[in-house]
Simulated scan of single mutants.
Amino acid sequence: MRAAVAGSSTAVQPSERDEIRDLLKRTAVALKQGDVPFALCGGYAAWMRGAPEPDHDADFLVPEAEADRAAKVLADAGLQVQDPPEDWLTKVVSGGSFVDVLWRTCGRPVETDLIERAEVLPVLSVHMPVLTATDIVVTKLMTLDEHYCDFARMLPVARALREQVDWAAVEEAVADNDFAVVFLQLLDRLGVVPKVSAA
């Protein structure tokens, strides 16, 4: 069975990747048909913008005010919906794969403006809103803390998206997260992106 924990070294098998992709599409179609505002985020959003395909589940954001309706829409579409102990997401499950539908990220409610900034892109033949490269990087960096600080997973994303990202906006958004600030300094030292702040 595929490990579903951050930082796992267990590679996803082709059949599991197909299962995740299929579940991603079915979740997006259900949310679209239910008129629930949403956006693809996380690793698969980064993949759509040029980063390596992730080896774990897919993630969507919905505004906190739409959380209950999103869960109902997904269940009404025939998808298997689970409510985990965490009170900030719903899981859509199929076999050994799952999609997370989150209405809070990094402890903050998902606001409508974040969804509205997303760009509609074709994802596996389904057109859906995908977070901007800047918002992808910000949301990923804001998850870094003393319990999870895996720069190795962030570097390929930063390298792939660097020309699409407003790095000044990223620096401002993550200024209160010391781990994210250090990662931006690492990107500067490695020459991935130029230093944003004035000397």
Rank of each mutant, 00 (worst) to 15 (best):
M1Y: 03
R2A: 05
A3S: 13
A3H: 06
S8R: 01
A11Q: 10
E16K: 09
L24N: 09
K25W: 03
T27G: 06
T27I: 05
T27S: 10
Q33G: 04
G34P: 10
L40M: 08
L40N: 09
C41I: 11
Y44Q: 06
Y44V: 00
W47D: 02
M48T: 12
R49L: 14
D59L: 09
F60L: 07
R69I: 03
A70P: 07
V73M: 10
A75S: 14
A75E: 13
D76E: 14
G78V: 01
D87T: 09
W88C: 04
W88V: 10
W88L: 05
L89N: 01
T90E: 02
V93S: 02
V93A: 02
V93G: 00
S94I: 01
G95K: 15
F98C: 04
V99N: 00
D100T: 00
D100P: 03
V101E: 03
L102Y: 03
L102T: 04
W103P: 11
W103V: 06
C106W: 00
P109N: 12
V110A: 08
V110M: 10
R117M: 01
A118E: 04
L121R: 13
P122I: 00
V123I: 02
L124Q: 07
P129S: 02
T132H: 11
T132I: 04
T132P: 06
A133E: 13
I136G: 02
I136Q: 06
V137G: 04
V137W: 00
L141I: 08
T143G: 05
L144E: 01
D145C: 12
Y148I: 13
C149G: 13
C149H: 15
D150A: 11
F151V: 07
A152C: 07
A152D: 14
R153D: 10
L155R: 12
A160F: 05
L161R: 00
R162H: 13
Q164L: 12
D166R: 08
V170R: 01
E171N: 03
E172L: 04
A175Q: 13
A180C: 13
V182A: 15
F183L: 15
Q185R: 15
V192F: 10
K195S: 11
K195E: 08
A198R: 14
A199E: 15
